[in-house]
């Protein structure tokens, strides 16, 4: 019994400790960002590996998600004789929800896990401590550029996802199912608001980019420096990012669209 309480207490303390470490890490990282504008090539390098390399999965998934939405939406709407509303259905669901959320989940799987593995391996091969020996702050030199790159890439990827998804839905809806293209676009434009829908989607994706990159970098930086530890940290990145994305999505949606 005592042992149980003791282990529970230890577990709780270590959870708080990790939470505290994570936030101190975040503060260090944010403090390192202003210095990056002097060495922007570091960020560009990371934009390539974080953003550009995630582009393919985002493009393909976006296209297919849009096509499925077009198909499913059509099948439901045609019962009510409202298949012209397909454009509204697709654009609102993509721009408000699926674009930011699905692209953030893919981003966590593609870029987040890669970041964790990379940083974790740097730690386990003692490259990070080597940098510290040379009086180079690894958080400023290694972590901060990756964080900024993640923060920049995520909204771009989400916008591309939504745009490609809408094109996919248009291809299926107009090309395959014969929805009138004028009604498709005009109803979409009448019901989708730039500030309320698209900008809120962009805000969501910025928040997700922030959280996912933070989790990925912290897990890598905090990983046990063994091959098993790095593997476990990578798994945790994906799982925790998914929780954070879906939980935050509910909170953000309630804040943005709750009062309608």
């Amino acid at each position: 019994m005592i042992n149980l309480i003791r282990s529970l207490g230890r577990w709780g303390l270590s959870a708080f400790e990790r939470l505290g470490r994570g936030h101190i890490f975040l503060m260090h990282m944010l403090a390192g960002i202003p210095g990056l504008f002097l060495r922007f090539s570091l960020v560009v390098q990371q934009l390539f590996s974080v953003g550009v390399l995630s582009l393919l999965i985002i493009l393909i998934s976006g296209l297919f998600v849009g096509m499925v939405l077009g198909l499913q939406g059509y099948n439901t709407l045609v019962d009510f004789g409202a298949e012209e509303s397909l454009g509204v259905l697709v654009s609102l669901s993509l721009v408000r929800e699926l674009g930011p959320v699905v692209s953030a989940l893919l981003f966590a799987g593609r870029a987040g896990s890669a970041l964790t593995a990379e940083i974790g391996l740097m730690k386990s091969t003692e490259q990070l401590s080597g940098m510290e020996m040379m009086a180079v702050d690894p958080i400023r030199r290694i972590i901060a550029p990756r964080f900024l790159a993640g923060l920049i890439s995520m909204p771009i990827l989400a916008a591309i996802f939504s745009a490609v998804g809408i094109i996919g839905a248009f291809l299926v809806g107009h090309g395959l199912l014969g929805v009138d293209d004028g009604a498709f676009w005009s109803q979409m434009q009448a019901k989708t608001d730039f500030y309320d829908d698209i900008m809120n989607g962009v805000i969501k994706s910025v928040v997700f980019g922030f959280v996912v990159t933070w989790i990925a970098l912290f897990e890598g930086y905090d990983a046990t420096p063994t091959s098993e530890g790095v593997g476990r940290a990578t798994t945790r990145t994906v799982v925790h990012s998914a929780f954070a994305i879906l939980g935050l999505d509910f909170v953000l949606t309630a804040l943005m669209f709750g009062d309608e």
Binding site: L47, F48, V52, S91, V95, I156, A159, I166, T192, F194
Partner: peptide, 26 residues
């Protein structure tokens, strides 16, 4: 790398522009 990153950002802006002009009521 820089060119590809530049293209990536340009594609992102183009996507946002399409969302703004073609999809929304902007």
């Amino acid at each position: 790398t820089e060119i590809i990153v530049g293209m990536f950002v340009a594609v992102g802006i183009a996507a946002l522009f399409m969302l703004a002009m073609k999809v929304s009521n902007l």
